[in-house]
Amino acid sequence: MGDESKNSSEEPSQVNQDELILAQQRQIEKEISESIPLVGEMEPISSLNSEYANDEVYLEKIKDLSSKYKHIRRTRPDGNCFFRAYSYAGLERLLDKKDEFNAFYKQAEESKDALVQLGFQQFTVEDFYDIYMEVLKRVGDLTDVDDAKKTLHFLFNEQGYSDYMVVYLRLLTSGQLQKDQDFYSCFIEGDRTVADFCHQEVEPMYKESDHIHIIAACAALNMGVRVVYMDRGNNKSVTEHDFPEGCTPLVHLLYRPGHYDILYP
């Protein structure tokens, strides 16, 4: 016993609060990631009801939501959900429209040089670009649309590929913000420059997305999105917002505070 207490009193210098917090945070992240797939299966809107069993405000809104949408596809809430949901849903829709897919593919092919010109490191941008194009090619080459969608679903649930898609979309978003920085700088609070903002809030993984990320991502991919907001607000219906305003959205996302999932009309 004496020895043991001696050991424990030597420990203070070894234990560090920062590390403990991070360790705990990592544990929580790990638990989340083990319980929810990166991109889930399609489920009926009514599956939301069970999450809000005794919550009148939400139940009312889910009713409103189900009058507009039939299905929901959940994504892992890891801070990357907007980017993952947006790129998955976008590609899934494009697979139904071969011409638009080809145009999208061509635009993606040219995106790397644009990023390098903006000053991104060629060496690492290339790494993400290669995987991004590999995924587009693998799903695009399949003539059977159902096969292509299955492959897309498979790749988006392979951590390696899925995260690389997120990183590249983050880089494209960052590139868009920096290209049009005169415009975007008005939306950034504090005295951060657009470049600072990109390095701190856009490029690192697991950083959550705000309006400014969405606007820039849509501009970068030239693909509109409708975000349906569902929160505890007083109105009985869900509110919708299209990015960019007035577009015909290709992708529909459900936003609940802190998280995005995919919606299907």
Binding site: Q121, F123, D163, P204, Y206, K207
Partner: peptide
């Protein structure tokens, strides 16, 4: 590794 939140995947070993 002590501050993973500021790491960017586009950085490298170099």
């Amino acid at each position: 590794g002590h501050h993973p939140e500021s790491w960017q995947p586009s950085w490298s070993i170099r």
